[in-house]
Amino acid sequence: MRLPAQVDRVTPDASAVPAVASRAAERRRAIVAFCCRECAYAAADASANARTPLPPTVRLVLLPCTGRVSPLHLLEALAGDADGVMVAGCLEGQCHYREGNFNALDRVLFVQRVLASVGVEPERVRMFTMSAGEPPRFAAAVREMDRAVAALPPLSRS
C-alpha cells in the first residue's frame, strides 16, 4: 500500500462559521467539491440532515469514488469560474473501491505542482478525507476550504 505524502486533516471547529452579515459584503466565491458517494457525499448528506449550516460557496459534485477524479476535471473547474476545488474522499485504507482515494491524492498533488509551476496558488486544490460516520469532518473541511480560498486574491483568467 502506498502511504499518502500529505492529506489535509481538519478537525471540527464550531466557532469557524463566519457571521452572516459579513458574508453579504463578500465577493462571490465558487468552490467545487468532488465528493465520493460512499464517504464524503454520505457525510455531506448526514451533515445537511442535521441542518449544519455551511457557506453557500461550495457546490457538490457526486462521483462513485474520488478515484474517478482526473487532473482534467480539477483544472477545467479552475479554468471555469471556481476559485478553489476540493476533493473529498474516504479515509486512507478505507476506500470502498480499495484504493481510489490514493489515486485521487496523487492527482491532487500533481495538479498542485502544475499550478505552482504556472504561478497559481497550489492550495486552490486540496484533498480531504473523512468517513461517512463523521459529518462534522465534512463540514469542517468545507469551512476550511472556504476560509483558505477567501484569503486568496482573485484568480485571473483570460
Binding site: 462521483l63 469514488c65 478515484g67 474517478r68 482526473s70 482534467l72 477545467e76 489515486n103
Partner: peptide
C-alpha cells in the same frame, strides 16, 4: 466495480465510466 480509476488514468480519453463520463462530469 465501477470506481473509475482507469478512466481517470486514461491518457487518450478512450476509457470512460458509465454514467460518469468526462463529458458528463465537466
Amino acid at each position: 466495480r465501477g470506481c473509475g480509476i482507469c478512466a481517470a488514468d486514461c491518457p487518450s480519453g478512450a476509457m470512460q465510466l458509465g454514467g460518469f463520463s468526462d463529458a458528463e462530469i465537466l
